[in-house]
Design a protein around this nucleic acid. Sequence first.
DNA 1: ATACATTATGTACTTTAAACACATTATAGC
DNA 2: GCTATAATGTGTTTAAAGTACATAATGTAT
Lengths: 243, 243
Amino acid sequence: MTALHLKTAEIEKATHSDFFNIAVSVDCVIFGYAEKQLKVLLIKSDLEEFKGMWSLLGDLVRINEDLQEAPYRVLLDRTGLKDVYLEQVHTFGSINRHPSGRVVTTAYYSLINLCNHQPKQMENEVHWHPVNEIQKLAFDHKLILDTCLAQLREKIMEHPIVFNLLGEKFSLRQLQDLYEAILGVELDRRNFRKRITLKNWLVDLNEMEEDVPHRPGKLYKLRTQLKKEYQVAQKQNLEGTLV
Amino acid sequence: MTALHLKTAEIEKATHSDFFNIAVSVDCVIFGYAEKQLKVLLIKSDLEEFKGMWSLLGDLVRINEDLQEAPYRVLLDRTGLKDVYLEQVHTFGSINRHPSGRVVTTAYYSLINLCNHQPKQMENEVHWHPVNEIQKLAFDHKLILDTCLAQLREKIMEHPIVFNLLGEKFSLRQLQDLYEAILGVELDRRNFRKRITLKNWLVDLNEMEEDVPHRPGKLYKLRTQLKKEYQVAQKQNLEGTLV
DNA sequence: ATACATTATGTACTTTAAACACATTATAGC
DNA sequence: GCTATAATGTGTTTAAAGTACATAATGTAT
């Protein structure tokens, strides 16, 4: 008879470490976008075994918080961002994935608007890294990053989620640059425009780009309806620095 | 400073229950196919709180096994099947999802050939249930089932995985019945044939159905190449009862 | 033999995707 | 101011894939 089929009274009598012998953590692949590059927020690992290497932001799940709330807490603590877009991707649980003990970790990726949020990010050895320049990371975090990136790539053509990486207003060129940065391929400008406009995700703002060294493009925003559904207002920043 | 950033020496000094206070389990949504219905293998819950209700097959992850091995062990123990097709879907970790304590569970679905494997299944209050007749289950298992079914539905048109639910040889009608059972919709026979044959998944065996009360259809099998990639030989049964 | 059910195959129409051409509107240099 | 340049905005053409629907072929049952 296995532990899960014990009755409550029995499970309480059992030795604590019989059941609670694996730690549970979350790791966040925090994606940002700047300089036409997809970036990920990393922290210097302070474990001896991974001295000098970079790792994802993560933490143990607390006894009094839901699993799905843990990544929100990690993001709030480390970046000051609230209500970001988060998606669970996969749970990694190889025996020796963490040198300090048995830790099973659930990976989430999040999409945040890098432009609006510079202040808190540089503290504590936390830095943005271009995704395609990352060769290896501490723990199994490179695998986790690759898994999250693959899932992100699969999702972006069907669901309007990349707008979490952009400002409120953007041109189609900016949007295409973003898609190209994520997918790692070049896209045909005319076909891209057609695919996007057919999805009816965007609203033409009847405004033009300003201060660009070429012919200004029209500005668009994500439809309000979809914004509610797929995009999360970054309240903290909206009430502060944002337009 | 959080636990994950403690150095190894420090983590060992800390109280055990500071870190290992959440149990980790796996739950398996075991899909089978019979009588033109998609079925799932369930067990009678023996927890007081869910007396008389059905639940998924699951177990705590052991300290000396990888997370991804745990569902294989559960399937081997409960059904006797080895090398089945398994896919991780999602991890559920709400605080109160398990009445006996804090348990985070990772859900997997598996596809097994129900025809080849009758012997061990009936022991221990384990039964097959038609998926579309299931109203509620113990714990959050109905949510887990729905999540796995949704993921299965998304995957089957792009990846040749449903063949794990069928025997070696099958007619296009049998294959269509299976797709209809999984998707819960009726499909046009002629268009279905076209879509499947365009994918180049099948090999025409130049054999016909036998003992059917109508005109026999051609028999096909999954291409060997794909079988290696997506389908796992059910060794135990292949060496025993199977053709 | 005939009626009937099921398999097997084909055709026309629509939608989607890919490759490519051209006109428009701004900046920059002269 | 004029022109070259570079980016934006809008097409067309062609092929591929998806949908709706029709017909012929092959078996069983009466």
